[in-house]
Nucleic acid binder design. Structure first.
Length: 260
DNA sequence: ATGGTTGTTCCACAA
């Protein structure tokens, strides 16, 4: 089972890029973030023509997540529990072939001095609570998406320049560690340990200041796996191809492979 | 500290 996650930065603007990548990479499941359209406007029929079923949770202009799957999508959950007042479309979860799979778009949190940052931390606390509940079920699950978290200095081109940013500051990284430390496996780093001759592995390059041609990126798109899913982990790769194309998203897909 | 780019929307805001 191959599961991809990709922040597409508007599914409408990215439709040709996304379709050509799906035809070439052909993952079994795809998690989208930042679809930037309302639920009803999600182009599900386009993906159905490529052999996928689709579920989306969107809103006007911003955010929005979706799940595509070649196999049936069951027991859909729309939204992250823990705050009924939170109207931002950032979380979708479903069961596919017996695996609980979430597509999440964690709040950016910048600028740190505003309400955006405590919202990010509250959202992370809710995610941790929800993950603890999922762990108690002892089922295989995968939490994939744009976490807007740089886990460690190896995951950013200039750690000093990002020290106070909401994606990298200690409080953000601590919250991410607290989530992982429930007993989850961060798939990419588990298979590609730092210091094993691995080159920098980024998933996002800002449109500005020539970040892509200089390979000055961030690794902020992640897969966190439950123990039962981690037992099946055989691959996690970053496909830089789509970032190089015309009208590219600023993020590129990450592809997870589980046995079975 | 500044400047740089893209997408959506109403020409600012989010990233």
């Amino acid at each position: 089972m191959r599961i991809a996650t990709w922040n597409v930065n508007s599914v409408k603007a990215r439709l040709p890029n996304v379709c050509s990548w799906l035809e070439q990479a052909a993952p079994d499941v795809v998690l989208f973030q930042e679809i930037k359209c309302e639920t009803a406007a999600f182009p599900g029929s386009v993906f159905e023509a490529l052999g996928y079923r689709a579920a989306a949770l969107g809103q006007k202009s911003y955010n929005g997540v979706a799940i595509l799957s070649k196999r049936p999508i069951e027991d859909l959950r729309e939204g992250l529990p823990g705050d009924s007042d939170d109207v931002q479309a950032r979380y979708l979860e479903a069961t596919i072939d017996g695996v609980r799979i979430a597509s999440l778009y964690l709040p950016n949190g910048n600028p740190v001095g505003t309400e955006k940052y405590p919202y990010k931390l509250r959202w992370m606390a809710r995610l941790r609570d929800h993950a603890a509940g999922l762990l108690a079920t002892e089922q295989p699950f995968v939490l994939g998406g744009d976490y807007n978290i740089i886990p460690a200095a190896e995951d950013v081109y200039d750690p000093a320049a990002w020290a106070t940013d909401a994606l990298f500051r200690l409080e953000s990284r601590s919250a991410f560690r607290a989530l992982v430390n429930l007993g989850l496996t961060e798939a990419y780093r588990a298979l590609h340990p730092v210091g094993a001759g691995e080159p920098p592995a980024y998933t996002f390059w800002d449109y500005q200041a020539g970040r892509w041609p200089r390979d000055q990126g961030l690794r902020i798109d992640h897969f966190l796996l439950s123990p039962q899913a981690a037992d099946r982990l055989v691959g996690c790769t970053i496909d830089r191809g789509p970032r190089a194309g015309e009208k590219a998203s600023d993020h590129t897909p990450v592809v997870l492979e589980l046995t079975g």
